[in-house]
Design a protein around this nucleic acid. Structure first.
Lengths: 211, 211
DNA sequence: CCCACCATAGGTCGGCCGACCCATTTAGGA
DNA sequence: TCCTAAATGGGTCGGCCGACCTATGGTGGG
């Protein structure tokens, strides 16, 4: 779970982006700041993994934030005027990535994961390569208490195979065994039906959505 | 149900905002456009209740879109450079509201409802409400064929409320009505049980996971 | 060498679910 | 204005689901 701080004086953008990012299972926006000073305060008080910052901000601007923080949390600069000067200034100030606001949301998500791992995305080419190679394991206790077969069942259900006969056929086992596995899953996830089990599995990152 | 078109060349903004707006039961982002020409095409083809448009766009800009449409769908102009000239120009071109991108997300939601009712917001407002999430290109036909109530049901199920009594209580309706809505959802999503419905809804971006 | 755990499979049974009917009221689009 | 569609509520019924229990063979750790 990557904790993100968004610093942007355009609230519509900041809040919307926060919502958009939070819809991604392994990313969480823990705070938004509408100027650099506020951002610096939050950075002091909260645990932030990745900082997303706009260069243009009133009072204390993005570059100042970057310089005063250096690489404590890896930072992604987003801007609407993606000039080379800005780009160079951003990296000189310690940015780990530089993206225009015309970037698709999915690419930003991948960039967040990349810089969180310590990578620096200096050009768009290496970026697209890095993006694809980002999946995530990291399972909590409950998730890891599930057996391989149980996870297989959850995966199949997340693919749309939710009825007993479908699951039995997909895993080459009898209907009875499917129901046994399901009962075990329900107990471990503290649920009592297939729909809730799938929701829990997705929210815990045990399975992934296709989209 | 208010059908919204977002026209903005900054994809991060447009997609995020679409995400923010669409899961509100009475609001749905039917499409996003990244330039004025695309916006005009969509306006011709689809039924749009409210247009959210950025003034600065490549090719055909926001003002041009407004002038060529006049007040067919009431339009909200969002911009990052909120000058008086832009403001006057926007209203002269037929805008129903003019908001800087520093507007809180909640105010925009209220503005959407207001202009949809025919109001023109020439000065600042005070409002409330919250939002959720949705996705990027054109919301597919199946997703937008769902009614507001049906999406509410799906949202609740994605939050873990999957049994009939739970859903009935959450939506303040009878068990029978819940089952009626579910039947309608199954038909539209081509599934036949709650678990598959939730999976489909998540994969289509109709609902989002909490984490 | 055991014991714990997993994967497999079978049985029973109450209850909820999903399919298919229907009706009424309201609101919005043609 | 008319008519479609949405939202609400009701009924029936077959069947699948989930809870609980038992059993066996395999595998791995102590």
């Amino acid at each position: 779970m990557i904790r993100i701080l968004i610093a942007d004086d355009h609230q519509l953008f900041a809040e919307s982006l926060a919502l958009g990012i939070s819809a991604i299972p392994d990313l969480v926006v823990v705070a938004t700041a509408s100027d650099g000073r506020e951002a610096l305060n939050i950075l002091k008080e909260q645990l932030i993994d990745v900082l997303i910052v706009d260069l243009e901000m009133p009072e204390v601007d993005g570059l100042t934030v970057l310089r005063s923080q250096r690489s404590s949390p890896p930072s992604i600069v987003v801007t609407m005027h993606a000039s080379d000067e800005q780009r160079n200034a951003a990296f000189a100030a310690g940015a780990a990535a530089f993206l225009p606001k015309s970037t698709p949301l999915g690419d930003l998500a991948a960039a967040i994961r990349a810089v969180n791992l310590g990578m620096t995305l200096r050009n768009n080419l290496t970026m697209s390569e890095i993006l694809d190679s980002h999946r995530q394991p990291v399972l909590d206790e409950i998730a890891s208490s599930l057996t391989a077969r149980e996870r297989e069942l959850l995966t199949k259900m997340a693919e749309g195979l939710t009825s007993t006969p479908e699951l039995a056929e997909a895993l080459f086992i009898s209907d009875k065994t499917v129901k046994n596995h399901l009962a075990s899953i329900y107990h471990k996830l503290s649920v009592s039906d297939r729909a809730s089990a799938v929701v829990e599995a997705i929210n815990r990152g045990i399975v992934h959505t296709s989209s």
